[in-house]
Structures are given as structure tokens and as C-alpha cells.
Design a binder for these strands. Structure first.
Lengths: 259, 259
DNA sequence: CGGTCGCTTGATAATCGTCAATTGATGTGG
DNA sequence: CCACATCAATTGACGATTATCAAGCGACCG
């Protein structure tokens, strides 16, 4: 992990590495203030850990490029990836509660992040109300996303899970103003499986099946989506994963009514 | 749903229904201010909905007594309970992101809640920094909890899931300064199953098995934990759910290594 | 060039969901 | 007050989804 410090006198100058990489909901007014608060950028290579679960919450991080996994570690030694963080996303937000990181943050690829010391964030908070409100909105959005993931993990089939992941990923790509159909998975099959609550082998089979059916092209970790409509059919639960050979079973049942 | 308005002139007086029911991390200094912001209490009976997913985010809620389920609704008509909220807990926090509720909030039993209009919360935020910081910490804690639930849903067996739920529930009971070993599940087996990503039938079998093994007493929805140590054995994954009859399989494998 | 790592694919089987039948509790209307 | 219906829960039988085990292959790295 390589640290690039940014001397204070340069911080107000415009070409700051974090500039232009902030989440869109942190408005332009706040942008400069925030980039001022970043005292260093960090360069990490694949597998390096930016933050350790349980360690003191000293920094917020912004991904400039590359990607990270957030790994939750259970008391009985389990571990699961609870989110991926790509460019322009902030990490470490679950630390506000008890001033400790609650996950490990590990680079999926060579990555660059901006580091915001909490001391500086605290100071800005005092000076600028809006910043705190935006932080609140951002953490709230992360919570909403985690709740969506709970829905996925608890009540979707393997085919639905992967369709949801791919469509979600396509959407993020669109927001980054890049070609939404082509992107690179930065993670291994095993990491993706951990996030979706599936085994590596199941992920591999699903990707193969998607390719066979002409829904997408898969070349290693490069994805090209060809039939978004078919992905939505998968998401709706109409498709099943054949492990050997299987007849088409009857239609899916109606959704569980919980009201 | 019965609304009890609280005239402004009474709001500063001490016997406010919300007082003493605030989360412990909202310090005493803030307590009075917050209770002042509550303009009404609401009484709901089992099955009534306090907030609807997608509707404008107009209020925060505090459970005074009773309990609620937060139901996440998927695009394909799925639904899953993503959290339960008992006395002294706040609800609606995922609404800050887009000013809409992201879940339905439904009473599990006859319940009483305090309603905080967001307009009043906004006003207090302007006047008092600490309140906003506490809100941030509270939302952050909810996020950490959701991430824990992701770990549970994605990488635990049915036996581990229910053990985790029961131990967690016991812990909350302890914090409420009540007998940690005895409590009432407010939800049906089906609701508990939805939260844990299991079917109603599996929940029923697990509870029966826990009772047979003398780990706890189960009478309808009343629970009495007899052997916390055994629950921890279940949590560690050493126990399996026999669907008919089964030999003891070999020891569990080591946890997945993701570093 | 040997070794590890990521990935694929097949065979097997375990966990847990689904379907079904039954019971007890609760509530409702005649 | 008693059928009657409805709902929550229990339990059994069955089977599907998906994990696990195993073998093999290409790529990359030291």
C-alpha cells in the first residue's frame, strides 16, 4: 500500500485526484471542501487490506478507481462479502456507530482511494451542515441497499440472484456514463459466490448457461450483455438452473403474501 | 390506527409517552428536545401498516411498545422481512436517501409508537448538531446490523440461523433489563421464517427439536431458554436438522477463506 | 518449467422447500 | 351456544435446488 501525501498548500488547488470522483449526491458546493479534507491518496494492489474489522474508525475512503470487497466476519469464523465498492463510491460508513470498522475492506484489483481523516470530517461537519446531511443520506442509501441484498439472499433462486447482480451492475455502468452492456467483473467466481450466497461452482455454471443461451458473452471476467430482456426473465424467476438434465417444471408459484 | 395528538402546550411537560423510550445512544441532553418534536402517538393493532414502501418519507417512528416488521418488496412481487423492531427502537431510517420509505412497517401486535414529523426533525437539526450526529450513528448501526443479517442469510445453516436469532433476542432482552431467558416472539413462524430465509415448516421443526433436546421450552410464542451454552453449540454449526432420521455426519469443514 | 490459482464440468448427495393431512385455537354468525 | 370457517402450527413424505467432491485444463508467475 503506497501513500501519497498531499501538502496542505496544494490542497486547495484544483487538480486534486479526488475531484470529479465524488458521489453525485454530494453537491458541487461541498465538493471542494471535501477534496480539501483528503490528506492523502492510497494505492493498493489486489488483495491488500485497507481497513480491518474491529479496528478504530479513523478514516472514510472514496474509491477513485479499482474496486473493493467488504468482508463481514462472523464469530464462528464464517465470512461473507456484503458489498462491492467501485469507483466513486464511499466506504467505511458502518463505522459511525461504534467508531470501529465492521468489515474488512480488501482491494479486488490495483486500486486508488482517497483517504478522509475523521478528524477533518468532524471539522467540516461543524462548519457545514449540508455535508452532514449528505452523509446521513449516503449512509441511509447504503442501508437501503443492504436491505435489498437481504431480500435477494433470503428469497431468490440462484438464477434470480445472478440476474439481479448483472442488471444492477449494468445500471451502475450506465450511471458512470460508460457503455452499460460491457464491463469487467473485478472479482473471482468465488468472491461473487460469497456475495450472492452461492458456491463458486454454481456461479460458473450460471455464467456458462447464460452464454449458451446467448444472453451474454463471457470471456474470463469480461462481460457483454446481449439480451437484457432475457435477464429480466431470469430475474422474474421463470428460468431454472439445470444441474444435469431436467424437464421444464411447471410455472412458478405466486409470491408469498405477508401482509 | 388511532391517533392521539399532543397539544403544543403539553409537549414540554415531563410526562410525555415517548420519554424513557429513546434509544440509549441518544443522550439525555437530546431527550427532551426529541420528545418535544413528537406531535402524536399512534396506536395500531396487529396487521396495521404504519408506513408503505415508496410513499413520501414524512415521519420517523419510535416504538414505545409492541413490535413491527419491516417488509422489503421486490420488483418481481417477492417480499421478505428485513428486520423486526421492538420497544425503544426507531424505524424508517432508510428513508433519508430518497425521501421515500423503502419498506412497509407493519405491526406484529397491538402497538404504540411516537411519530416525529421530519419537518420538526429538520428544525431540531438546525438548532442542535449533536442530534444529527446521533442520527448518523443510529443509521450507521442499522447498516451494521443489516450487514450481519447478510452474513447470516448467505452463509449459515438453518440451525445456525435460529440459534443466532434466539441469542440475539436474548441479548436485546438483557439490554431492556428484563429476564433475558424468557420472552415472547411476537411474530408467526412464517414471519420468522421470512426473516431468516427459511420456510415456516423448517422453523417449526427447529423449535420442536430445540425443545426435545431440552435447550428451551416453547409454548406457542413464549420462549424460555434453558441452555444458552447449547445454543452456542448450534450457532457454531455442530448441529444439524434431521428431516427424518440421519446419522451423525463427519465434522464440519473449516470456514471459507476469502482473504 | 513446475506449481499454484482460477475456472469449468460431471457425479453425488444433503439440506431444506413443497405438498399434504391433522389438530387446536380463535372468531363469527345463525 | 354451537357449528363453521379460518388461521397458526405440527409432522411426515418426497424431491428439487444447490453444495460438495473430484478431475482436468489453461494461464500466469517465480
Amino acid at each position: 500500500m503506497k501513500r501519497h501525501s498531499i501538502p496542505a498548500q496544494f490542497r486547495s488547488h484544483h487538480p486534486h485526484p479526488c475531484d470529479g470522483n465524488l458521489p453525485s449526491d454530494l453537491s458541487a458546493v461541498l465538493r471542494q471542501r471535501i477534496t480539501e479534507a483528503s490528506e492523502a491518496t492510497l494505492e493498493l494492489s489486489r488483495g491488500e487490506t485497507l481497513a480491518h474489522s474491529g479496528m478504530p474508525f479513523k478514516h472514510l475512503f472514496l474509491v477513485v478507481n479499482g474496486g473493493f470487497k467488504a468482508v463481514q466476519i462472523g464469530e464462528s469464523g464464517q465470512s461473507q462479502i456484503v458489498s462491492f465498492h467501485l469507483a466513486r463510491e464511499m466506504m467505511g460508513l458502518s463505522g459511525f456507530a461504534h467508531q470501529r470498522y465492521t468489515t474488512d475492506l480488501v482491494a479486488l484489483a490495483p486500486s486508488l482511494v482517497c483517504e478522509f481523516p475523521m478528524t477533518a470530517v468532524q471539522a467540516l461537519i461543524g462548519a457545514n451542515h449540508l455535508l452532514l446531511e449528505h452523509l446521513l443520506a449516503y449512509v441511509s442509501e447504503s442501508l437501503a441497499r443492504a436491505e435489498q441484498d437481504q431480500l435477494m439472499l433470503g428469497s431468490m433462486s440462484a438464477t434470480q440472484k445472478i440476474a439481479m447482480f448483472l442488471l444492477d451492475r449494468q445500471e451502475r455502468q450506465r450511471q458512470a456514463a460508460e457503455d452499460p452492456r460491457r464491463f469487467e467483473l473485478l472479482m473471482t467466481r468465488e468472491e461473487l459466490g460469497s456475495y450472492l450466497g452461492l458456491s463458486m461452482e454454481t456461479i460458473s455454471r450460471l455464467l456458462s448457461q447464460l452464454q449458451e443461451q446467448g444472453v451474454m458473452r463471457v470471456d474470463k471476467r469480461l462481460i457483454e450483455i446481449l439480451r437484457e430482456d432475457q435477464l429480466r426473465v431470469w430475474l422474474d424467476g421463470a428460468v431454472n438452473l439445470p444441474m444435469s438434465s431436467r424437464r421444464k417444471p411447471a410455472a412458478k408459484r405466486a409470491a408469498l403474501k405477508l401482509a
